[in-house]
Design a protein around this nucleic acid. Structure first.
Lengths: 149, 149
DNA sequence: TCTGAAACCATCACCTG
DNA sequence: CAGGTGATGGTTTCAGA
């Protein structure tokens, strides 16, 4: 889908605050809210907008620790291995990557104890993986709302 | 802030779709929308809800490549180095981590050429860093809307 | 892309158990 | 004091221009 500057402005506004009323978006880009409604609908259709999500503080819901986990996958067992990872509670992202690791996870856990359990009782027990490395996130210095638009 | 099961249900609904009208949230949790309005307001105040964001497909806005970048920081130069990273266009997350890397970035770029520029003309030129490693994301297998609630 | 209108929703002051 | 009611002004949504 081809986006013009108007679409991009709408995206910027909704990326920053997804609950901005279309009527206000319309005011800010100087168009009618029917047009905004239209354009947003088309961008949702096309998959440009994948959804709208409340950003929930992990600590507030009981997750005190986040980490990246790099994994090496044994040849030929990728699919099976990935499927089982998806079912582990606390695994919130699974990426396939180049470089030192084949798979990079993002995980959340209540505390370091439950992170250890997650790693040693769930991930390490799964076969299909060799080596892993856990990089605990000590702090996040910057976290954009999404890609720059 | 103390969250009860009602708060958590509201969070689940808004994490999945931040534009759900409070009146519908109210219907689903069997309460009045005034109560939902109230609870959401309190959770925003308390920072449990950090915001609402449209999820924008990076490819649709011209970013064909995403990567994780691990960096080693030289002793005593952390603050200065982090500040300069934040100003590089395409750097969308900056995390401090334990393990092999001191800093883990998430970056987006138009293509591999501009990723190379980003790395060699911007990051590598900055002093305060030794070693770096770029892990290009070949694909994302799973991406949760946020922490499990 | 807009106008206009009906249905719908957010929000607030004020009750109620 | 958390939750509900009801009024009102704003918002969404859609047909038709």
């Amino acid at each position: 889908m081809e986006l013009d500057e108007t679409d991009r402005e709408i995206l910027r506004i909704l990326q920053e605050n997804a609950r901005t009323p279309f009527s206000e978006v319309a005011r800010r880009i100087d168009m009618s809210s029917a047009t905004v409604h239209d354009r947003v609908g088309r961008m949702e259709e096309a998959g440009v907008i994948g959804g709208y999500h409340a950003e929930v503080d992990p600590k507030a819901v009981g997750y005190g620790v986040s980490a990246f986990v790099g994994l090496r996958v044994e040849q030929g067992r990728e699919e099976d291995a990935l499927e089982r990872l998806r079912d582990i509670d606390g695994v919130s992202e699974i990426h396939l990557t180049t470089g030192e690791w084949d798979v990079m996870l993002r995980v959340v856990a209540a505390d370091t104890d439950s992170l250890r359990e997650l790693m040693f009782e769930e991930v390490a027990e799964m076969d299909g993986f060799s080596r892993s490395q856990t990089m605990i996130i000590l702090g996040t210095d910057f976290d954009a709302d999404g890609p720059p638009i």
